[in-house]
Design a protein around this nucleic acid. Structure first.
Lengths: 324, 324
DNA sequence: GACATGATATGAACCGGTTCATTATAGGGC
DNA sequence: GCCCTATAATGAACCGGTTCATATCATGTC
């Protein structure tokens, strides 16, 4: 329709400078009249521009993680990318398979949460991946950018708060320590105890708390100890519900019989009676930064690899803690 | 490597019956040895099998909607499909654009929530779409399958509960009535009032409550009325938080000064003090059914179009309501 | 006026499969 | 022994772009 070769059209639409203004105009006009648009599938065939970015996380059901995805998707959409979503179900095998699937779909960038940062197969798959990968809330990994929250400082602040109130038997419910968030929370927990000269009691530290049921069971077990804790740091992502359910069933009142700090903030923590002191960070900013950093890495090879952004956490003090 | 033509390899891998057993074996062996796998991009080029299913919803941040996505994704993954996610930001223009983008990516099936079921452009785009579309929690639309919850019956049950306790000034906070959930909740609200012979008061029905801030503001306004309601039906998806925040600020105690029913269940409703009576339905089943129905439609043209699955809702009675 | 130069447009190969018309082969019927 | 048919494998066109070597042409230089 514009009376030019297909290659010329391709160059016009890709803003290739080697095409003169009059022809450029004619092509744009024809494109507008035909409502013509490039086929992304064909584009990813010869060229390698699929305009696809993948995000793989443990489970979409993690509350408030939707905020992360919403913001990341928005940044990506504005940049002309489409988001591919998969859940890893916390399995290294699935993670490796997903990376292969993303590669075969010519995905241009990946953001993900690896379930086990020490797993050799996953690390090998990450090193092999031809597209940049950004780790979400994970430790620094060689050659990989990351965006994470400073859970260690958050845990230190939470523990300092409890220790200052006079607590000495402080229990902790935490998730899988093979991943960064739980690992750094435990670090913060130990660091704060050490700084206060309090000997840590192994039986008060419960890890691998992954579901609400786990949290319920472990809270029950803790409170039935001969010397039950006077405070609980529910550090695992969104396990507050299970813990509160157990305390309610035991007739133990939060803020009077037991002090409580949540490792991540939620509407539940805010609106519970009494409101629960919690560690908070900006998930929306996390999503925006993750998408932005990934796009930057995708856009130019000059950006140095292995960038790390550690978002600050803050302790929101409410009414769930008092002196034992 | 197998000493056959590329076309033959293609036929073997697509289980085309016109290839003899010995050759079939040789090809499979070579495939295994080379770790060869078909390129989905090339497949979607000539053939039309992108193995992509898209899901577009208003906002990923809707709590518990992650459950829907998790289950749907699982069903799709098992069937060999990858999920493409986009948010519509509740804008018809974005919805139309997304349908076009999905088409150009040769997406094989779409599940989505249209923001306005009467919008002519969106309806036209849906009719034009070459791939099957399934509506999530929306009304029956011509030629489109749907999976929805029975919000009308849920609202009737909630209202019957309040009316039976003796409430007559019952307020309702509801979302956008251009979409099925809010519209059917209002229907149920009116139907229950009519059945009880109670005249509806327009000022007690607040629609377009879309954000937590809206819910906060409308609750404030309602309680400052000369004759404030004795009960509130917080029908909008997850606006319970905003409403509770307002009541707390007003010093109005739930279950004593004001009765409350939530239109959708949540951990907040369950663990609030007092726990909030709520309408509940199975979002996990909804996700599974949506994915399954869509796959069935994609798989065979014989499945009749316009199938409708209405999931039951149930009223979970807790301790947020008493006689006025 | 011949020739090198730079700027533009073209044509064709290419990406990795799918699909179909065509050919080669084997088997069966008369 | 010949023809017909069914079956199995092949080769090439095709999908819709991208990319690069090549062709064309106007301009500048000596």
């Amino acid at each position: 329709m514009a009376g030019v070769a297909v290659g010329t059209v391709s160059r016009v639409l890709n803003d290739n400078p080697t095409v003169a203004e009059p022809i450029r105009c004619k092509v744009h006009e024809a494109v507008a009249r035909l409502g013509y648009q490039l086929d992304p599938v064909a584009q990813s065939m010869r060229g390698n521009r699929s305009r696809l970015v993948a995000c793989a996380i443990r489970d979409f059901d993690i509350p408030r993680f939707g905020t992360f995805i919403r913001e990341a998707e928005q940044v990506l959409r504005v940049a002309g990318y489409t988001l591919l979503l998969s859940s890893t179900t916390n399995s290294p095998a699935v993670e490796v398979a997903l990376l292969r699937a993303f590669e075969s779909r010519k995905v241009e960038g990946v953001m993900m949460t690896v379930s086990d940062e020490r797993n050799a197969e996953v690390l090998a798959a990450l090193a092999r991946a031809p597209m940049p990968v950004l780790a979400i809330d994970r430790d620094r990994l060689p050659g990989i950018d990351r965006v994470a929250a400073d859970h260690r400082s958050g845990a230190v602040a939470a523990m300092a708060h409890l220790l200052e109130l006079g607590h000495r038997r402080i229990a902790m419910l935490v998730g899988d320590t093979r991943a960064f968030p739980s690992r750094s929370r435990v670090e913060g927990f130990r660091q704060a105890l050490a700084a206060a000269g309090v000997a840590p009691q192994p039986r008060l530290l419960r890890d691998r708390v992954l579901t609400a049921e786990d949290a319920f069971r472990e809270t029950m077990a803790l409170m039935n100890l001969p010397e039950p804790p006077t405070a609980i740091f529910v550090a695992a992502m969104d396990m507050l519900g299970g813990c509160l359910r157990a305390l309610r069933q035991l007739g133990s009142q939060v803020g009077r019989d037991i002090s409580l700090v949540a490792g991540s903030d939620s509407e539940l923590a805010e609106l519970h009676e009494p409101p629960v002191t919690a560690i908070s960070w900006d998930l929306a900013a996390m999503g925006r930064h993750a998408a932005t950093m990934l796009l930057e890495r995708m856009g130019s090879a000059e950006v140095e690899v292995g960038r790390s952004l550690l978002l600050p956490t803050q302790l929101v003090i409410r009414r769930s803690c008092r002196a034992p």
